[in-house]
Amino acid sequence: MIDSNIVLIGQAIAYTLYVLIIMILIGWFGYNITRQGKSNVINPKLFYSLVALLVLIGVSLHIVTHETIPWKSMDLNRASIKADKTFYISVANHKFNLPAEKMIIKTNNKVLFNVTSEDLTYGFGLFRQDNSMLFQMQVLPGHKNDILWQFDRPGIYSIRSTEYSGPKGIKMIEKNAVIVTN
């Protein structure tokens, strides 16, 4: 599975280029219709063809980048995938109640995190050592909240609540809670 950091960088580059192309088109259009002389008329066919091309690129970009999202296929085929390990975690009073045993995972294992909230809406996110986020989901009280993830490299991750749950929620960090080994 591609690392979510790479997807993020790739998408940022692709969408920045796309926006720049749009800005160049608008700039070209604005310059041409405002300049002095006879040639301040743009052929509508040319203009609308370029707009159509931009729409086509935009939609294609969505489809292509959609395919690069690493967890997409696993999410779509959830019903037929059996998790190698399942961790049950509950959250109450702004505190994660983790399993009694340390959460140790083998590389390439598929792991299901089943998280329930007993009071408020929280977030459940795994963060790398450099504080960047690996994944996150919302944890709603009274609902089933789970996420299936395949860890493709060793690492140590902290768990944090990624949703605002009041001033008490800012301290919801469990350091080095998940360990992925070879």
């Binding site: 408020l120 009280p141 749950s165 009041g166 008490k168």
Partner: peptide, 20 residues
């Protein structure tokens, strides 16, 4: 009163009277 559920209003935070 420091009422602070934020504008996201994730239920039941606006009615969490243990904090507000």
């Amino acid at each position: 009163t420091h009422y602070a559920p934020l504008y996201t209003l994730y239920w039941p935070l606006p009615a969490d009277f243990t904090q507000f």
